[in-house]
C-alpha cells in the first residue's frame, strides 16, 4: 500500500471522529480550549502508535481466541504510561483532561485500529497508520477546540482578543455537541464533493 495514502487517510477520508464518529467522548469533553484538545489528541496518538507497533510485532504470537484480551492489556499498559508521565511532567494539562486520560483505554479508535489494521499488517504500515489516525484525531480535536474557544471565550490558544465573555454555551456541554455535529456535516459535504 502507498504509505503516503496510508498516512493521509486519517485526516479527512477516514478521519476517526469526523467520518467514523469513534472516540466521541474525549472529543466532546476535552475540547473546551484548543490546547486541551491538542493535548488529548497527542496523548491518544501516543497510545495508538504504541499499541499498533506492539500488536503488529506480536501478531503471530497471539492466538486468535485470546486476541481481544491481549490487545486490551497492551493498550491499557500504554494508557497507564501516558497517565503517569503526564501527571509527572505536564500537571496542569493532566488536571484539565482528568478522567479522560485513563479512558483512552476504551476509546474505540485504539482497539479498532489494533483489530482492523495492526493485527493484519506489517510493523511499518501499522506505525504509519497509527500516526495518521492519531494525528487526524488530534487535528480534528484541535479545530473543534479552537472553534469552541473562539466562540465561547473570545480567545485562541489562551490569548483573549475580546474583553468580556464570549458565547458561554460553547464552552459548556451543549456547545460541544452542536459544534461537533456541524463539523461532521461539513466533512461529509467535503468527502462527497
Amino acid at each position: 500500500m502507498n504509505q503516503v495514502q496510508n498516512f493521509s487517510k486519517g485526516f479527512i477520508k477516514e478521519n476517526p471522529i469526523l467520518v467514523m464518529v469513534l472516540g466521541a467522548c474525549p472529543a466532546l469533553a476535552t475540547t473546551s480550549s484548543m490546547i486541551n484538545g491538542l493535548g488529548m489528541g497527542l496523548a491518544t496518538t501516543f497510545v495508538l502508535l504504541g499499541s499498533n507497533t506492539v500488536v503488529s510485532l506480536m501478531k503471530n504470537l497471539i492466538p486468535d481466541k485470546v486476541r481481544i484480551p491481549a490487545f486490551i492489556v497492551v493498550i491499557a499498559t500504554f494508557v497507564t504510561i501516558v497517565d503517569l508521565v503526564m501527571n509527572a511532567y505536564v500537571p496542569s494539562l493532566y488536571e484539565s483532561l482528568g478522567i479522560f486520560i485513563p479512558l483512552i483505554v476504551v476509546n474505540c479508535i485504539v482497539l479498532g485500529r489494533a483489530e482492523a489494521f495492526a493485527s493484519k499488517n506489517t510493523v511499518w504500515s501499522s506505525v504509519v497508520d497509527g500516526a495518521g489516525m492519531g494525528l487526524g484525531f488530534t487535528a480534528a480535536l484541535g479545530v473543534l477546540g479552537a472553534i469552541r474557544e473562539i466562540l465561547g471565550s473570545g480567545a485562541i490558544g489562551g490569548f483573549k482578543f475580546i474583553s468580556g465573555d464570549g458565547i458561554l454555551v460553547f464552552i459548556l456541554a451543549p456547545g460541544a455537541f452542536i459544534a461537533l455535529g456541524y463539523m461532521i456535516a461539513i466533512v461529509k459535504k467535503i468527502n462527497k464533493a
Partner: peptide, 8 residues
C-alpha cells in the same frame, strides 16, 4: 493461549 497471555 495461557502462555501468550501470561507473557503479555
Amino acid at each position: 493461549m495461557v502462555l501468550s497471555l501470561t507473557l503479555i
